[in-house]
C-alpha cells in the first residue's frame, strides 16, 4: 500500500489501542510504584508523534524499561492476560546498546502496532525493553505459553523482522518458569 494524497490528510487507525509504560528503578520505592503509564495511542500518526518525543531506549539509564502493551494489560506477570504466557527473549551483548538496540526496539514496536503476526497477533500482549549494565534485553510477551502454533509462528516472524542471523538462537520462556526460578537461568520452552 502506498501513501496516497488522501492518506496524508487522515490518521490511520491501529487494530489495537496501545499503552506505553516507563519503569525507573528506585530502590526506595516498590516495583509497582516505579512503573508509570506514559500515554496511550491508537493511530499510526500518534505513535510516531510519541516515538519522536521520548528518549531513545539507548539513552535511558541502566535499570530503566520501556514497555508497550495492549490497552488493559499491565506489563507484569500477574496480569490475567500474562499469567499463563511467556516471552520471546532477545538478549543483547553490552556493545549492542550503541550499535543495535534502538533499531531492534523500533522494529519490535512496528511488529506490534502493525499486527505483523497476522491472526496470531491476538496472542501478543506487548513488548518490553530492559536497560541493564550486564546486557540489555528485548522481549515480546504472549498470553499462552502452551499455544505452540501461535508461539512458534510469532517467534519465526519476529526473528526474521529483527534481521537476526540464522546462527543467533532466541528462546521462549514461560513467565511461570521465570517467576519461580532459583537462579538466573530460565529454561527455554521453545527456540527458533
Amino acid at each position: 500500500r502506498k501513501l496516497s494524497f488522501v492518506d496524508r490528510l487522515e490518521k490511520h487507525p491501529l487494530e489495537n489501542r496501545w499503552a506505553l509504560w516507563f519503569f525507573k528503578n528506585d530502590r526506595n520505592r516498590t516495583w509497582r510504584d516505579n512503573l508509570h503509564l506514559v500515554t496511550e495511542f491508537d493511530t499510526v500518526e500518534d505513535f510516531w508523534a510519541i516515538y519522536s518525543h521520548i528518549q531513545m531506549a539507548s539513552k535511558l539509564t541502566s535499570g530503566c524499561d520501556y514497555a508497550l502493551f495492549k490497552d488493559g494489560i499491565e506489563p507484569m506477570w500477574e496480569d490475567s492476560r500474562n499469567k499463563h504466557g511467556g516471552r520471546w527473549l532477545v538478549s543483547l551483548a553490552k556493545q549492542q546498546r550503541q550499535s543495535n538496540l534502538d533499531r531492534l526496539w523500533l522494529e519490535t514496536l512496528l511488529c506490534l502496532i502493525g499486527e505483523a503476526f497476522e491472526e496470531y497477533s491476538e496472542e501478543v500482549c506487548g513488548a518490553v525493553v530492559n536497560l541493564r549494565t550486564k546486557g540489555d534485553k528485548i522481549a515480546i510477551w504472549t498470553s499462552e505459553a502452551e499455544n505452540q502454533p501461535a508461539v512458534t509462528f510469532i517467534g519465526r516472524v519476529y526473528k526474521e523482522r529483527l534481521g537476526l542471523s540464522p546462527k543467533v538462537v532466541i528462546g521462549y520462556q514461560a513467565h511461570a518458569d521465570t517467576a519461580t526460578k532459583s537462579n538466573s537461568f530460565t529454561k527455554n520452552k521453545f527456540v527458533i
Binding site: R1, L3, D7, H12, E15, E45, W48, G114, E115, E119
Partner: peptide, 18 residues
C-alpha cells in the same frame, strides 16, 4: 472481522509524511 495490518514500509512512510 478483518484485522488492520500495516507493513513496515507503510509505517515508515507515515513517519516521514508531513
Amino acid at each position: 472481522g478483518t484485522r488492520i495490518i500495516y507493513d513496515r514500509k507503510f509505517l515508515m512512510e507515515c513517519r516521514n509524511s508531513p
